[in-house]
Design a protein around this nucleic acid. Sequence first.
DNA 1: TTGTAGGCGTTATCAT
DNA 2: ATGATAACGCCTACAA
Lengths: 298, 298
Amino acid sequence: MKLAKEMDYHPNLLARGLINKKSKILGVVVPTINRQFWSNSISGIENIAYKDGYNVMIFQSAESFQKEVEIVETLANSRVDGILIAFSKETQSYGHVQQVMDRGIPVLLFERVCDELNTSKVVTDDFLGAKKITQHLISRGKTRIAYLGGPLTLGVCRDRFHGFQSAIKSVGLTMSPDHFLAMEEFTFENAKNGIFQLWNSKNRPDAVFCFADILAIGALDACKELGIRVPEQLALAGFGNDDTSRFVSPSLTTMSQPSFEMGQLAAKLILEEINTGSEQPIFKKEVIQPTLVIREST
Amino acid sequence: MKLAKEMDYHPNLLARGLINKKSKILGVVVPTINRQFWSNSISGIENIAYKDGYNVMIFQSAESFQKEVEIVETLANSRVDGILIAFSKETQSYGHVQQVMDRGIPVLLFERVCDELNTSKVVTDDFLGAKKITQHLISRGKTRIAYLGGPLTLGVCRDRFHGFQSAIKSVGLTMSPDHFLAMEEFTFENAKNGIFQLWNSKNRPDAVFCFADILAIGALDACKELGIRVPEQLALAGFGNDDTSRFVSPSLTTMSQPSFEMGQLAAKLILEEINTGSEQPIFKKEVIQPTLVIREST
DNA sequence: TTGTAGGCGTTATCAT
DNA sequence: ATGATAACGCCTACAA
C-alpha cells in the first residue's frame, strides 16, 4: 500500500470489472430525478448500496420508452451487477427487461412495476392508500367526490383509482362520469384546467381526489382564481407528500410515501439477490403502506 | 449485425473501455439531487451528453467532503472521460480534484466552484443577482433589510452577500449587525427561527433577503405564525425560483437561475475539452445571469 | 513466500 | 478482404 501510494497507483476499475465479471455498480432507471419521490428513493438506494461497497449509476428515462430501452441495454452492457427500474409512463411491453434478466442480470422493479415480470418488487399500496384518503374525504361529509388522475393504462393510476372507487362504493356513493378526469401529463396547468372544467359544469363536486400532489396544487390555484373556499366548498386531497404540499396554503392533505425507505428496501432486496449468487432466488414483493397526513385542505 | 443479433451478442463496455482508454461516461458530483437546481442541472448535462453518445453517472456528496473525495476517486478509477463537480459545503481544500486533473482527466466546476483550480467553470452571477433583488427591495421603499444566508466561507454565500451589501451601500443604507443571520444548514426550520429572532429584537427589519427559496419559505411561515403581513410589514425575497416559490402564498419574489441551461453549457464545455484531445485546453469561465421574478412577497 | 503465465472481451495492427 | 495476434490492466492459479 505504501509503495502504491508512492508510485501514485490507482486501480483500473474497468480492468478489475472485466476479470471479476462484476462492476460493483447498481444501475437505477427512473422517469425523472426532478421529483422528490424519485430523488428520495435514489438516496435510499445509495444509502444501502454504499455500505456494501456498491456505487449507483442513475439514469432518467424522461418517461420515454425508447430511452428506457436504450438505458437498460447500456446498463447491461456495462455489466452492472443489478438494475433497479421504475417504468416510464409509456412502457407497456417488457421485452427489454426480460432480455437482460435472461442474460443473468438481477433486476428489481419499484413503484412503477408490472405483473408480467418475475422479479422482486417494491411498491406503494396504492389501492389502500387511495381508499384511505377517500374515506377521509367521506368522513368530512363529502359526497360528490371527483377523481383527477392519469390514464388507467398505468398500473399506479389503476390501483389508486380502484382504491378510490372502493371507498366510494362501500358507503353507497357513486361517482358521476363527468367527475372522472384523466390527463396524460401530471402538470400544474392540466390540473388547473381540470378544476375549471369541473366547476363550470352543472354538476359541481364537493371534493377532489388528486392522483399526485402537483395536481392538487394546481387545483388549489384554480380554486384561488375562482374564489372557491377550500375545504368548505371544495376539499382537496393529494398523494405523495412532496415538501411543497406542506408549504402551500391551505396546506395539503395527502398520503405520505416513505420514499427513502422504499429505496433502501429495494437496494437491500437486490443486493441480497446478487450476493446469494446464481441459485434460484426467491422473489419478494414488498407492499409499502403510505400514511395519511391531514392538513388544511380537507 | 445480423449474426450478432442471432447469437445474442452484446458488446462488453468494460472491455471496450479498457482497450480504448475511454468509457464514454461523464461523472457528475452534486451535493444532492433532491433540489430542483441540481436535478435540473443534471438534466441539462444529460441532454447534451446523450447527443454525443455519452452516458452520465450521477453521485451525491450529501454535502460531505469525505464522501466527495471518495466519489471523485471512484470516478477517476472508473476511467470516466470527464468529471463535473459542484462542491459540497464542507469542501475547503481541492487536492482531491487537482489529483485527478494531474491524472489527465478533464474536470469542470459548476455553481459551487473555487478560484484555486485551473478548469472551466459555469457559475451564476451571484453578486449581480443578489444586488438586483436587493435593489428591487429598496425600490419598494424598504430601508432596514436583513440578510438570511449561509456562512461566508462558502463562495456562493460570499458573493451573494457582497452583492447584497453593494446594493445597500450604493444608496447610502447600512445593515445593522444584528440583521445578519448566517446558518450552517439551509432549512425551513432554521429560517423560521431566524425570523423569530429578528422579530423579537428591538430593531425589526422591514425586508429580508434570503439566500435561497427554502429559507424564504420558512420565513414566510414564521410570518404567518407571528401575524406579520407580507410584504407590507416585512417583504421577503428568495433566490433560485424553485417550483415551490410560485405555489406558496403570498408567492415569492426570487431570482431565477437557468439551471437546465447551465447544465447544458457545462456539458458542452467539458465535451469540447474532451474532444479537442490533450492539447493545452483554454479554460472558460461562464457567468450566467439570473433574472428577477417579481411576485407577491415584495 | 515470491514470481510468472494466462485469460477476461475488445480493438488495432500486422500478415496473409 | 480476411485472419491471426498482441495489448489494455487486473486477478487467479500454479510453479518455483
